[in-house]
């Protein structure tokens, strides 16, 4: 019952035989050991599982791994190049855009998708565009600040 699947994850080619019902988030976490992508609600609401599928933010708990067959996937582990944090990661760290940190990988992945589409997003736009990411600590104020600082750093 296994189906062959292959994709590019964080720049590396990966392939496996999987059960067709395998969710993309489980493929990333269990098969590839990329546990930076979190499972929060498992019902496509909280956004902790957000990754980039061909450059676009999606909720990997609501996508079958087979829907990513042949695609290019980026997870939180794929952002920092050669030991240096991605500007958005650095901004979350500097602005204390996290409390418990559980939602952070999804927040960062959504924030990068957001800034790529709205490089000069104001606070209202950031809040609206992050609708699909929930912070249970309610740390939104610093998250929005971090996204603004990260956006500025990404444009440099």
């Amino acid at each position: 019952m296994g189906i062959a699947i292959s994709m590019t994850v964080n720049g590396a080619a990966v392939s496996a035989e999987i059960d067709p019902r395998t969710l993309l988030v489980d493929f990333l976490r269990v098969n590839l050991g990329l546990t930076g992508t979190h499972v929060g609600c498992d019902t496509a609401q909280c956004g902790a599982c957000t990754i980039h599928l061909d450059g676009r933010a999606v909720k990997s708990c609501n996508v079958l791994a087979l829907q990513a067959n042949g695609a290019r996937v980026t997870t939180i582990e794929g952002l920092a190049g050669s030991g240096e944090l991605h500007p958005m990661q650095a901004a979350f760290k500097e602005c204390h855009g996290l409390q418990c940190g559980f939602c952070t990988p999804g927040m960062v992945m959504s924030a990068i998708d957001l800034v790529q589409r709205h490089p000069n997003a104001d606070e209202a736009t950031i809040r609206a565009q992050l609708e699909g990411n929930l912070c249970r600590c309610t740390g939104y104020h610093n998250i929005v600040k971090a996204v603004q600082q990260g956006a500025a750093a990404m444009s440099r």
């Binding site: 956004g47 957000t50 599928l53 676009r56 933010a57 999606v58 909720k59 609501n62 957001l114 699909g132």
Partner: peptide, 9 residues
């Protein structure tokens, strides 16, 4: 519709 991630799929 939904949120950004849902609209992307």
């Amino acid at each position: 519709i939904g949120d950004r991630q849902v609209r992307n799929m």
